[in-house]
Simulated scan of single mutants.
Amino acid sequence: MTIALDTPGLWRRMACWVYEGILLFGVVFLAGYLFGTLSQTRYALDNRHALQAFLFVVLGIYFVWFWAHGQTLAMKTWNIRVVGRDGKKITQLRALGRYVLSWVWFLPPLLAVSPFHLSGGEIVVICLGWFAVWAILSRFHPQRQFWHDAWAGTRLVTSAPLSR
Rank of each mutant, 00 (worst) to 15 (best):
L111H: 02
V113A: 03
T41N: 08
F66N: 12
K89A: 10
W147E: 00
G26H: 04
G21S: 07
R98L: 09
F106M: 08
S163D: 15
R48V: 09
W147P: 02
L110R: 05
D86R: 00
R94S: 11
F140T: 15
L55G: 09
R139I: 05
L111C: 01
H148F: 13
G97S: 10
Q40E: 11
G120N: 03
L96Q: 09
V64P: 04
G87Q: 10
S138I: 08
N47P: 05
G60N: 03
R155C: 03
V82C: 09
G153V: 02
G87P: 06
R42Y: 10
V27Y: 10
T91L: 03
M75C: 01
L107K: 09
C16T: 02
I61Y: 04
V133N: 00
V27S: 06
W11G: 10
V57P: 14
L73T: 05
W147G: 07
A15E: 05
L45P: 07
W105I: 02
G121T: 01
Y43R: 13
V82A: 11
W65H: 10
Q145H: 10
R13T: 02
M1P: 14
F25K: 02
L93E: 15
W134G: 06
Q143Y: 11
P115G: 00
V104M: 11
Q52W: 13
V157H: 09
H148D: 11
A132T: 15
L118Y: 11
W105T: 10
F25S: 01
I123G: 01
A160V: 03
R48E: 11
A31T: 06
G9R: 08
Y99W: 11
V58A: 13
S114Y: 13
Y99A: 00
L45R: 15
F25T: 13
M75V: 07
T91Y: 07
L38W: 12
W151Q: 07
H148K: 05
W105A: 04
V82N: 04
L34D: 07
V64F: 00
L118G: 06
D149T: 05
A50H: 12
G9N: 01
H141W: 12
R81F: 00
T2N: 14
V18F: 09
L5M: 15
G60K: 08
V27R: 08
A132H: 03
R164Q: 15
W67R: 00
A53R: 06
G97Q: 09
R144H: 13
A135L: 01
N47W: 08
R81W: 05
L59D: 12
V133A: 11
T7V: 03
T158D: 14
A68N: 12
M75A: 06
Y99I: 04
R12F: 07
V113K: 07
R85L: 01
F25I: 15
G9P: 02
V113T: 11
L23D: 07
